[in-house]
Simulated scan of single mutants.
Amino acid sequence: MTERTDVYDAAKRSAVMRRVKGRDTTPEMTVRRALTGLGARYRLHRKDLPGRPDIVMPGRRLALFVHGCFWHGHDCARGSRVPKANREYWTAKVARNRARDLAAREALAAAGWRVETLWECDLKDAVALRARLAELLAPSPRVGDDG
């Protein structure tokens, strides 16, 4: 039996990839609804910031990335799965995504931003998500404050 290297021809693969959304995804909308429920105000996809974070809270200097586990190579079951067809392509693509994510995080941190990544697999537990977001939104104690 011969192994199939690709399910689609190049034109079909390109058409499929064009339909993959980069914004307003289900995980992103889940986070946005939770933030709104907590009374947070935010901006979306700021082009003037490195990596164009999905959610930005300028007053808090907080940038949130909402990552799909597969696309960004998370270490969960879904993120560590590599398609059987065209393995080299997918391995290289995810590696490029991870390198780009790291560069964006470092650039934002160097500019004084707090950067958090919320993974698709972590969004399934609504209570835990809300608690994590509330913790991120809580004012941080100032150095030297005793109270």
Rank of each mutant, 00 (worst) to 15 (best):
V143C: 03
K93G: 06
R130A: 12
R142H: 06
R60H: 12
H74W: 04
S140G: 01
E120M: 04
G79C: 01
A131C: 07
A134P: 05
R78M: 15
C76H: 09
D146Q: 06
R32F: 08
D6M: 07
H74M: 05
A138V: 02
L62H: 04
R23I: 01
W113M: 02
L49E: 03
L64W: 01
E3C: 08
E120T: 10
A85I: 00
W113K: 10
I55W: 05
D54E: 05
G22I: 00
P53L: 02
R41S: 14
A99K: 02
R98T: 14
R46K: 14
D48N: 13
I55R: 00
H67N: 14
V115E: 05
M29K: 15
D75N: 14
K12A: 15
R32T: 08
G79K: 06
H72V: 13
L38F: 08
W90H: 12
L137G: 13
I55Y: 09
A40T: 01
S140M: 00
A128E: 14
A128M: 13
A34H: 04
P58W: 00
R98F: 12
Y8N: 11
L123N: 12
P139H: 04
K21R: 14
V31H: 10
S140K: 07
C121H: 15
R18Y: 04
T26S: 14
R43L: 15
R132T: 08
V16F: 10
R33M: 03
A15L: 03
R52T: 13
Y8E: 13
V56D: 10
D24R: 12
K124I: 09
R130M: 07
Y89T: 05
T117V: 15
R43K: 15
H74D: 01
R132N: 01
P27K: 12
P139G: 04
E28I: 09
T91S: 08
D9I: 07
L129R: 04
V143L: 10
P53T: 00
W71T: 11
W90S: 11
G68Q: 08
V16S: 12
A126T: 15
R87Y: 02
R130C: 11
A109M: 08
A99T: 08
R96W: 03
M1I: 03
A95Y: 02
R132D: 00
L108M: 07
G68T: 10
D122M: 04
V94I: 15
L38W: 06
L118Q: 03
D75V: 07
Y42L: 01
K93I: 05
A104T: 01
R60V: 02
R142T: 11
G59A: 09
W90V: 08
H67T: 07
D101A: 15
N86L: 05
D9F: 10
R100E: 06
V115D: 08
K84A: 14
A77V: 02
L38N: 12
E135Q: 04
L118G: 02
V127T: 15
H67L: 08
D6K: 06
R78V: 14
T36K: 08
L64G: 02
R130Y: 03
